[in-house]
């Protein structure tokens, strides 16, 4: 594994996140961490932003990356780096919710503000964004993770739920998003 990474590195072949992380674990080289950050930071921040407010999302993202540095010796080279990163971040977010006793909204809010762009204009992206933000927390979480390329099994591991629950959440999330987008088109 290490030899393969070394050869790829010498030949300037693009390394996967897992290979970058394996090298970073061994060397602690800042440049490797920078490459990992550039590859995954947006995905993570968007995931957190979808599940929380911008300030909290930025704070949790930063803590998650710091944890990657601190706990890098716990990273398993056979594991998917992005799944590990998202698990760290998700745990931090849930801890924060528990600590501040601000539990995520479990039920959907079907409120469409008067004058809100997503409700009034014909642009579909704000409508999608609004619909996503108004999904129940766990459905939203499952949907975002699914869109980030994780399979049902991965999502179950990240969230600590069973696969059937994840499937249900995904089904409901998609169903509701489609419904909202359909309603938006009809308007």
């Amino acid at each position: 594994m290490t030899l393969t990474i070394a050869i790829k590195s010498l030949l300037h072949i693009e390394l996967s996140n897992e290979e970058l992380m394996s090298r970073y674990v061994l060397s602690g080289e800042a440049a490797l961490l920078a490459r990992l950050y550039d590859n995954c930071a947006r995905d993570l921040y968007h995931f957190l932003l979808t599940l929380s407010e911008p300030d909290l999302a930025a704070d949790i993202a930063q803590k998650a990356w710091l944890k990657v540095m601190e706990k890098r010796h716990l990273y398993h080279s056979n594991g998917q780096f992005k799944a590990w990163l998202f698990t760290l971040a998700r745990n931090l977010l849930m801890d924060e919710y528990r600590r501040t006793q601000r539990y995520p909204v479990l039920e959907e809010s079907d409120i469409c503000d008067e004058g809100s762009p997503s409700c009034s204009d014909g642009d579909i992206l704000p409508a999608f964004s609004h619909a996503l933000d108004n999904l129940p927390f766990y459905q939203r979480e499952a949907f975002v993770l699914y869109q980030e390329g994780f399979g049902v099994q991965d999502i179950a591991q990240i969230t600590g739920e069973n696969q059937q629950t994840i499937k249900s959440r995904l089904r409901y999330a998609k169903q509701q998003l489609r419904q909202r987008l359909g309603e938006h088109r009809e308007q």
Binding site: A34, L44, H46, A61, Q62
Partner: peptide
Amino acid sequence: LKALYQQRKSQTKPPHSTRQLLLAKA
């Protein structure tokens, strides 16, 4: 849905300060 999700994500940008802090520490 996937296209909309990617479009939504592309509009977000992680804070630059996090990157700077992280690299300084590293």
